[in-house]
Design a protein around this nucleic acid. Structure first.
Lengths: 152, 152
DNA sequence: TCTATAAGTTCCTTCAGGGAACCTGCAAGA
DNA sequence: TCTTGCAGGTTCCCTGAAGGAACTTATAGA
């Protein structure tokens, strides 16, 4: 958790960062998404300090991103909630950017196969109304109902 | 910057976090995207420490996300590079999640108007091959060419 | 009963974040 | 020309979060 608290800012980016803005949290979500669901599995896979992992998991559970469930006699597993599963969309866009700008010569470390068409593909952003591509260059940003605006 | 370095991990998420994983960086990008391009503007808008803002801006310029340009007599402005503009896609997905799960009763603080159709809409993830929706529940994750895999 | 393992907790050290004060170079006004 | 103002930092100190290793507790199986 950062020192400055983002949770009360009138900005959806800041409030999202309040939940998963600390650098380890997206990697923890990734691990849970791909099936590393127990404490020691995640700790060893990421090489994160046990102390920090404890703090992050508690925070993510408290924010309803992960659910902590008894697994078998005194053990626990962490699973994504619906709220957490939607955060994986963010990871998919991170993967897209990382593949494009940082992957180097070895190619991407991971591929997606889309259930609907069966093809190996990557993710694109599209408009929920007309379904055409929708990138940062394709939009105007306007103040919304909670009118503090995009930038405050 | 976090203490553990993510830049060398064989994971596109970790390498993306290495560039913008520190909590202030997405908010700095947001400010530059909406037109807050000078040091004092960003500092006052975000309430970030001048020291930390200096460090973040240098890091983002060094990583070719922002460009630092002379503006008029000894002043400078920061502008997004192509690499940086693509990171704004990440912000758009953060906004989507934040609007849905943390906006409360006031409604979203910002709206997008899509140039292609002129409508107020939000962003969706779709498949680059078949253009149908592509969410975390719609895909299989497979090891890619740099076969350390999604989870390492 | 003894041992192994999972899931933390505790303690200590180091380093990053926050905040305030200070510095520097350019520009315009008196 | 002097000086005032401002943008864009830099420097200093203090606090608190991250890292790491050792310790603790509870359960399961041999």
């Amino acid at each position: 958790m950062q020192r400055t608290q983002f949770g009360e800012m009138a900005c959806s980016i800041a409030r999202t960062l309040d939940v998963i803005g600390e650098p380890w949290s997206p990697l923890i979500l990734r691990d849970v998404y791909v099936g590393f669901s127990r404490f020691d599995q995640i700790q060893q896979d990421l090489g994160i300090s046990r102390k920090v992992l404890t703090e992050r998991l508690k925070w993510l559970v408290a924010n309803d991103v992960l659910d902590r469930r008894p697994y078998s006699g005194g053990r626990f597993e962490y699973v994504l909630t619906d709220k957490g599963l939607e955060l994986v969309e963010l990871l998919m866009v991170m993967v897209k950017w990382g593949d494009r700008w940082t992957a180097g010569t070895a190619g991407p470390p991971v591929l997606y196969r889309h259930h609907a068409c069966g093809e190996i593909s990557h993710v694109e952003l599209s408009c929920s109304v007309c379904h055409k591509p929708m990138t940062p260059a394709d939009i105007d940003v306007l103040p919304g109902p909670a009118t503090a605006g995009f930038a405050s």
